[in-house]
């Protein structure tokens, strides 16, 4: 793929998936300036990866896989401060109580905030499901089995519901 063709292809891919990428980035990075940095990183990674896209998976799966990996890399380099997900240890060992999280929520963007409070292993499949990926596509993005994805989605939904203060 020539440089110009690749540039055009990138523009098309980004035009199609910009909103999804913005939402995914927001679920990992609440700080606007760093979110923009993450998006720039994702856009560049897509430019690099486009020539290797063989249409074995859907374009959306390909884009989400690259964006998810870039977001993980971003989290490792720039951990969000004062975020319930600051350390993955906390995610595992001291998951915040739903009522504690709920108290921190604001009415605007409450779903986005709630998703951001989910432990990383549950947040990833939830975000990808919200972006319209099927369980087997989510499994391919995350390197899990479809069964694993199903369980994580179930647990993620339950925690999200509790966090949002909705009845189970």
């Amino acid at each position: 793929m020539g440089d110009r063709n690749r540039g055009r292809e990138l523009e098309r891919v980004l035009a199609t998936h910009t909103a999804a990428l913005a939402r995914l980035a927001a679920s990992y990075e609440p700080r606007p300036a760093l979110r923009e940095e993450l998006l720039q990183d994702i856009a560049f990674a897509l430019w690099r990866a486009l020539p290797s896209f063989r249409h074995e998976a859907s374009e959306k799966t390909f884009v989400m896989r690259i964006a998810t990996n870039r977001a993980l890399s971003h989290l490792a380099a720039r951990p969000p401060a004062a975020d319930g997900l600051d350390a993955a240890d906390e995610v595992v060992d001291a998951m915040p109580r739903p009522d504690e999280i709920a108290a921190r929520m604001q009415s605007a963007g409450r779903l986005q905030n709630a998703v951001r409070q989910l432990p990383l292993p549950l947040r990833q499949p939830i975000v990808l499901a919200f972006e319209g990926l099927a369980n087997d596509e989510i499994a391919a993005v995350l390197g899990l089995t479809a069964g694993n994805v199903g369980v994580r989605l179930h647990r993620g939904k339950a925690l999200l519901k509790a966090t949002l203060g909705e009845r189970p």
Partner: peptide, 19 residues
């Protein structure tokens, strides 16, 4: 979720700048 997309700058231009 989909109704709440934050505003985004021109990503293609950002990729060019990064390159």
């Amino acid at each position: 979720w989909r109704a709440g997309a934050p505003p985004v700058a021109d990503l293609a231009r950002m990729a060019k700048r990064e390159r």
